[in-house]
Simulated scan of single mutants.
Amino acid sequence: MKMTSLKLKQILQERLSDTRYHTSYNRDKDTFRVEWKESRQGITITLPNVVAKYNQRGQEAIEELVEHITEALRIMNEEHQLAGMEKNIFPVIRATSFPNKTKANKELINREHTAETRVYYALDLGKSYRLIDKDLLESEGWTEDRINEIATFNLRSLDCDYNKDTVAGNDFYFIAKQDGYDASRILNEAFLEEMKANMKGEMAVAVPHQDVFIIADIQNKTGYDILAQMNMKFFAEGRIPITSLPFIYEDKQLEPVFILAKNKPENN
C-alpha cells in the first residue's frame, strides 16, 4: 500500500497513543505534533518528509521516527543536572546558522570557532543528548569557562581511529565513529598537531556534517578539487549538516579554502 500523509498520521496516532501525550494534525501545513499534556512541550513532524523516507526505506523509517519522538519527549520531561555528570559533557560543532536559543526560548551556551562553525555543549544522555542552556548552567552555579574546560578534556578521551583512502596521489583520513562527536574531533588540537606532523603536503580538514571528520593530506592541485567534491557530497547527505567548506590547517589556525585561494594568488 502506498504511504500517504493521512495514513502516516493514523500510524503515528496508534503508535503514540500514550495517555500522557496529546497529538494533533495541521492539515494546512501537513504536520503532526506530539506533546506532553501537562507542559505542552513537544515535537512537530513534517509528514511529507517522512513519507519520502518511507518510500526509500520502508518500515524502518517509521520505527526510527517513533524512537526519535519518544526519546525527544522523554528528555523534555526530565530534570537534568550537570553535577555528577561531568564525564558526559562534550562539545558539538554546528553551523553558524544554528539557533542560539531553544524552542522554549532558552539561550544555548556556545562560543565562536570559525566564520563557518560554532561550538555548543551537550549533556550526553545515552541514546541522545541535550544541548546545555544558560538556565541549566546558572542553576548549577557553573561558568562557561568551566563547561568548556570539562567538555574539551572529555573530547580528548575519545579515540581518533580513522580509515585512510588515497585518491590521485592525495591521502584522505575519515573518522566516523557514529558517537555524535565525530565532527567535534576538529577541536582536539593535540590530535590535529599529531596529524600535521605526519603530512607530506598541506593539511586540510572538513566537517561536512556531525557524523564525520575528514583530514586531507593535499599533495597536488587535484587534491583540493577532490576534497571539495567529497565534502559537498557528505554535506548534502548529512543528518545534521555543518559546512560544505573545507579548511586549511596551518599554525593551529583554520581558514576556509575559498578564502585561502583568494588571498594566495599563484606566482607566475
Rank of each mutant, 00 (worst) to 15 (best):
N100G: 13
Y120K: 06
K53D: 09
R57S: 14
K2V: 11
K233M: 10
L65W: 02
S39D: 12
W142V: 10
H68P: 06
A236P: 06
R146A: 07
E250W: 06
A61E: 08
A83Y: 07
N231S: 09
L12E: 04
L65E: 03
P99R: 11
E193S: 14
K252M: 07
I218C: 04
H113P: 07
E193W: 01
D145Y: 08
I215L: 12
N263P: 06
L187M: 12
L12Y: 00
N88A: 04
I214P: 00
K262L: 13
Y120N: 05
N105Y: 08
L137K: 11
W142S: 03
H68R: 10
A151R: 00
V119Y: 02
Y129F: 13
S157C: 11
L65K: 01
C160L: 05
I45Y: 00
H22S: 14
E64D: 15
L12Q: 00
H209C: 02
I150S: 04
I69V: 04
Y173N: 09
T222C: 09
L192Q: 03
E202D: 07
Q59E: 15
E138A: 13
N55D: 14
Q13W: 01
I248Q: 01
W36Q: 11
R156L: 09
K53Q: 12
I147C: 07
T166R: 14
I175M: 07
R57P: 08
N105V: 11
E78I: 04
R20I: 10
L192E: 09
A61T: 09
E63N: 15
N88Q: 14
E35L: 00
E38V: 09
D171M: 06
A95I: 02
N110A: 13
L47R: 01
Q253K: 15
F90W: 03
F191N: 03
T114M: 08
T31V: 03
A190I: 06
Y25M: 01
A61G: 09
E250A: 11
R40C: 04
D145H: 12
K262D: 11
A115N: 10
L12F: 05
L227I: 03
A52Q: 14
L82Y: 03
K103H: 08
Y25S: 00
N148Q: 15
K37D: 07
S5A: 12
A95T: 05
V51P: 03
L192T: 01
Y54R: 09
S244I: 02
K233T: 15
L108E: 05
N110Q: 13
I109G: 05
K101V: 06
I75T: 06
R74I: 02
V119S: 03
S244Y: 03
E116V: 03
E194P: 02
K106S: 12
A104I: 00
A122T: 05
L73I: 10
K221A: 14
I69S: 02
N88R: 10
E149N: 14
N231Q: 11
N26L: 03
S128N: 14
N49L: 12
S139T: 13
G180N: 06
N267K: 13
T4W: 11
I93E: 02
L8G: 01
D211W: 02
R130S: 13
L123F: 07
H80F: 12
F258H: 15
N105K: 13
L131C: 12
F191Y: 06
A151C: 14
K53N: 13
K103P: 07
K221G: 13
T31P: 00
T19G: 05
K106R: 15
L131N: 10
E237H: 14
L123W: 04
D124C: 07
